[in-house]
Design a protein around this nucleic acid. Sequence first.
DNA 1: CAAGCGTGGCT
DNA 2: TAGCCAAGCTT
Length: 327
Amino acid sequence: MPWRVPPDQRKAGVRPDPYRVWLSEVMLQQTTVAAVRDYFQRFTARWPTVSALAAAPDAEVMAEWAGLGYYARARNLLKCARAVAQDHGGEFPGSRNALLSLPGIGPYTAAAIAAIAFDEAATVVDGNVERVMARLRLVETPLPQAKAELTTCAAELTPALRPGDYAQAVMDLGATICTPRNPACSLCPWTEDCAARSVGVQASLPRKSPKPAKPIRHGTLWLVTRHDGAVLLEERPAKGLLGGMAGFPTTGWDGSDLPAPLAADWQDRGEVRHTFTHFHLILTVLAAQSDGNPDRGQFTPRTDFSPTALPTVMRKAWDLAILPQPG
DNA sequence: CAAGCGTGGCT
DNA sequence: TAGCCAAGCTT
């Protein structure tokens, strides 16, 4: 993985760059390695240092993050970069406690940066570690209730020697061997120590309290193109769903009923279905060509617009309305 | 502290 | 295929 320092360089005394550790850890929050890899490459190529990122315009960073999800991470990424640049002389603070005070850095990420970049004996507790600890110590209390107990287990195992390597190792163990469904216990270095395996219940741990069903919500999206090809976009409010991202004007998605951004001869292009963390969305896509003056948003020249700069639900609407219709 | 917040891959 | 899941943070 591009954010890791290869073993031969590690043996030569090379420590990971805290900027790259931080960026990768934020991207990896609730996100798979496969999804992160290309985003990490693009971010580090475009902004090689935290000071370079701090100087970037908000809209460019949000556009580069588009598609990765949990967009509050991108807003906090910029806040954090600017805090490091302005309040810490462009260098990440080296302790877990100092890192914790920065935007978007919580208990897990602070510990991960402190351990991996600064070799502090901080205890990392992510989903992988929770699973490993629940099995190793046979913790049958469901998550999230068991979080505190699992953190205690993890802390008891954190070594003073090479805590950064240990942190990555225990997470890798969870990611590759102590996996959620079919753990490869025969390959596990802790197989003889594992309390869950000794009684055969490892695959059923950790227990999780049931999640509420996702409701279905409905809305309308308006896709307006001007005759010169410009596209009507608006920046979504900074807080809430898709906060700070560019998108096409929509109604609210919870029953609120905003009007169309302008009067036009709307064509029904069909429905977009998209599932967010806590609801399903069915979006009716209406398209029109108009040179009118919109009440919301602004026309963006077609040459300045790329659907890759949009969150996925918006990109789906674009594909539906603009791509050649099947048949 | 429970709820809000994305997405894509896998079964 | 519909649900589950992933290297969580904020309020």
